[in-house]
Design a protein around this nucleic acid. Structure first.
Lengths: 187, 187
DNA sequence: AGCCGTTCTTGATCCATATCAAGTGGACGT
DNA sequence: ACGTCCACTTGATATGGATCAAGAACGGCT
């Protein structure tokens, strides 16, 4: 739970009195490898911080899962779009390894937004960060070759290669597992 | 200027006293066809609402401009990522038609965020909306074929076809102008 | 109006990567 | 330890869209 406080304080300062209002709304949730944190068609109930484990964000398409991201220690997890819109989501979030997530319910977060201006600011800053991240990723997807994207992933998140099946990484890099396998061999 | 008030009120209610604090910070900016609203490498000074005209959001890549979006009447414009991070941006924003934008400077918006909680909420809601839009677009880019992406654009934003050069739309749809031209012919 | 550069069209060809197919290896449960 | 199920590899073939090329139409400027 201390992780939640540290995480929020990366964005805004928190007084003890404020933290005491915030803390009770966060709860711990364990997911075994393979379990769905969120599923297509369901409204995302919580916004999560990853305490441990790796999760895959993907959506199904012609019987395949197309992977659009991973979440791991210290990052956000869940289907933000569904959480924010309160509409059925388009993404699956699956625990790739046993995972522990810290989550807050939508209604509780909304109440905190109204009660604590500092939380509203926290929410804005997170959304800004996620939006900036998407922009960066979009540029990378469009301007880097498959091999460069692989290198970038290795450089930035080498641990993923041990934890995540190659077929998921291949999908994340927009190629078939066959192409991924052939690229690897070239190294 | 009334447009700014109406736009903000799509997200949050505004009292007259609040609006009187907000209004003075917005200014009108005219751009002729072809003019740069924002350019790669510069820090975005303002966050804009489009009063009239169409702008293209793109980034340069081996001598080509890759188009990632358009802005038009009532939508947001500018390089949000640079505006938010205060770092040199990676995108060009170019007026495709003569345009009039309503803009607020970063420092002024920050002051409003601190002074008016309702504005902080407004900021959060915009960022949420932009983030959700990106997610939707990402799914479409990845799951639809070139032909389907074309059909979808025609169905949803037919007006763009009149306003924007086909090469820009082609780039936005991730295909060459030749492929775009052939798809058109087929219909 | 007439000129010139840009955008758009159309056809021929090419290539990176997908798809199909078949075999190998490793992890996990009983 | 064994069998089963996936994940991964490797080779052969197919294909969507890119690239190259060349002409037509459009639009902005003097």
């Amino acid at each position: 739970m201390e992780l939640v406080r540290r995480t929020i304080e990366r964005y805004v300062p928190l007084r003890d009195t404020e933290w005491q209002r915030i803390a009770p709304h966060w709860t711990e949730h364990a997911f075994s490898r393979g379990a769905f944190v969120s599923a297509v068609g369901q409204v995302e109930q919580r916004f999560y911080i990853v305490k441990s484990g790796v999760q895959r964000l993907s959506f199904p398409h012609d019987g395949q899962d197309i992977c659009v991201g991973f979440a791991y220690d210290g990052s956000w997890s869940g289907d933000y779009a569904s959480f924010v819109t309160r509409k059925p989501g388009q993404f699956d979030v699956v625990a790739i390894t046993d995972s522990v997530l810290l989550g807050i319910r939508h209604e509780d977060l909304q109440r905190l937004y109204s009660e604590l201006p500092i939380m509203e600011r926290f929410g804005r800053l997170i959304m800004e960060e996620l939006l900036v991240g998407r922009g960066t990723r979009e540029i990378e997807q469009l301007s880097l070759s498959a091999e460069d994207r692989y290198d970038r992933l290795v450089a930035r998140s080498p641990h993923l290669l041990q934890l995540v099946p190659q077929k998921d990484i291949a999908s994340y890099l927009r190629m078939t597992p066959e192409t991924f396998s052939r690229l690897r061999r070239k190294r």
